[in-house]
Design a protein around this nucleic acid. Structure first.
Lengths: 337, 337
DNA sequence: TATCTTAATGTTAACGCTAACATGTCTGAA
DNA sequence: TTCAGACATGTTAGCGTTAACATTAAGATA
């Protein structure tokens, strides 16, 4: 009873089933011209032998791997990591597998290393979730002719597919509800200034201010974390003329805003309204529950996969924007001043 | 100026450098017996040709891929996704790459599909981040002889390496601070009952109750989300005798607890103390800031990688527990009743 | 000088699969 | 009866790499 230590190959199956290895290959690939009888016998032999196809050999022979490389910058943030998970889920539902790499800053050499690896590995396509223009440019440079989708709000040449959640319109939604309630003096606690999402949200904020204040709108720069939202708000509350509403660049910072206001005895929304962005878990249970902008990561993942597959097929590049959804909770109300 | 469409191979490099392909391979693999001069010339040729090694071919020839397969269940939760990202970061720092797959429930057939794929792909090892015993068992069954590390608090045979953050001791820390403040009537808002972490946190809670109440400790089962924490608390507040403290199974649910208490006019920590678990972003800015148990995902990732590498080396299996850290904020205080 | 090392290189044969091109073997129409 | 065409199968030759086994040349040892 000699048991071979290496797993069975297509040849072992062929020998035992009494057919050629190519016939086994045909069964494996559902090639039509195999008789039902042979097909059945081969399938049976595969089962008894516990044969498993060697993907490296297949990739070498065919030149394609059914693997998508996904690069994500700033994985510690809820947005990028949500996108990654949504992309992976969609990919697998379509029979693709994901090779992933998360990098922190998105420096060109990090990007180059990751993208190069994906190419070496023989991925069929690449999806890059990137937050800075530097990372966008580095990705484009490194990816060469490989089908690549950029999940970004940065500047991407027309011949490359890209997709992102519509940050600008989302922020506009936030501003629209505040203005609809009667707010004119709306401060902004933004994310880091080199972050593309932060930039767009801030731009939407600025462009929504009434012309009278649009040049001196109050803005403080945070770092996406709660604590920075807290600190910015504390600084803001030291100003002479207080805003009647604060638009925070994301929900985490909005939490910091809420805490600071609470500590200073300001009631939300009676004294100041607060709006966030992201609709993260817990935003429905802040005190008070946070009005915010919901991002549909699932739709993003689907679109990104759709675009890579199109690129792999050689179809022309498209650019897609996923709409956001305004979630009104109780942190917004009419201004009292 | 004829440009070949396919990328250059080791043979192209060899031809241009005037050496054999094996010499090129030696240079690629830093084999010692290549003269400095030849090595240099080959390196130069590689650069001018833009040669990139084909990993599929290498994997086929060597039988190893320097890829680790990482399977994660319940990716929507902060814990598992944090672990995934930490593992990936550590893996890449050690020259490994990650093939990932997130599954929702951890049903045996999903697990089997993922693990089988990893094996087909030729990964060097597998790390499975799993939350239920069902998923643990399915992983063990599917992984066969492949070096596999289970990131779980479930029951794992001694001959398999496993690692997790120490849930039980962490929950004990939460209970210890509450008891130290004088609380005896401590309610628990738990996670889903089939979740291993939830189970351990609840067990630690129960075993920490004073003997007088240990049989009738108040427990409500949530689903890890804020809203469930809110609902459980609302039910809890309808009871005749209210607890003086609530230990929430995670921070998200703790947010719901805080909101419910706030809505009912209960002051935290004056009327009721609240403790969470996870130390997610924003826990420092809830109202009031949340006392919670911090999990060191980075250490977890490092340990998991260490264990797979040991398993790949054929060294004996170990089991590792990563300690948690108590973070005291202002949601806990002495009981007033 | 003859022989034995060793370093540097080359040659051949896998690794396990699929593509492309045979080779039969049936059918059915001329 | 013969031959075209379809179908089912087999054979051969890669895919790009590394492993294992030569080979060569130069220096060391006897």
């Amino acid at each position: 009873m000699e048991a071979s230590r290496t797993s069975p190959t297509i040849a072992d199956v062929a020998a035992l089933a009494g057919v050629s290895h190519q016939t086994v290959s045909r069964v494996l690939n559902n090639h039509p011209s195999v008789s039902a009888k042979t097909r059945h016998k081969v399938r049976e032999t595969i089962a008894t032998l516990g044969y498993r196809r060697n993907l490296a050999a297949r990739t070498l022979a065919t030149g394609n791997s059914r693997i998508i490389g996904v690069m994500v910058t700033s994985t510690h943030l809820s947005g990028p990591s949500g996108s990654l998970l949504a992309i992976e889920q969609t990919a697998r539902a379509q029979g693709y597998w994901v090779s992933m790499a998360g990098i922190q800053g998105g420096e060109p050499d990090e990007v180059l290393e990751v993208i190069s690896h994906f190419i070496d590995q023989g991925v069929d396509g690449i999806i890059a979730v990137v937050q800075t223009q530097t990372a966008v440019d580095a990705t484009i440079k490194a990816s060469g002719g490989m089908p690549t989708v950029l999940v970004t709000s940065g500047v991407v040449p027309d011949n490359l597919p890209s997709v992102d959640i519509d940050q600008y319109t989302g922020a506009k939604q936030a501003m629209t509800i505040l203005k609809g309630l009667g707010h004119t003096n709306i401060a902004h606690v933004s994310g880091p200034c080199d972050d593309l999402h932060s930039e767009l949200r801030a731009a939407a904020w600025r462009s929504s201010l009434p012309p009278s204040v649009s040049n001196q709108g109050i803005i403080f720069e945070g770092d996406w974390n709660s604590w920075s939202g807290y600190c910015c708000t504390m600084s803001l509350l030291a100003l002479e003329e207080l805003p009647t509403a604060i638009f925070a660049g994301n929900d985490h910072m909005a939490f910091g805003v809420l805490r600071a206001l609470n500590e200073r005895g300001m009631k939300v929304p009676q004294d100041i309204s607060v709006v966030g962005f992201d609709d993260i878990g817990g935003a429905d249970c802040s005190i008070p529950p946070l009005t915010t902008i919901h991002q549909d990561h699932h739709a993003l993942g689907q679109a990104a996969m759709e675009l890579v597959l199109e690129a792999i097929d050689g179809r022309p590049a498209r650019s897609v924007k996923i709409p956001t959804q305004l979630i009104v909770r109780s942190s917004t109300g009419v201004p009292s001043r």
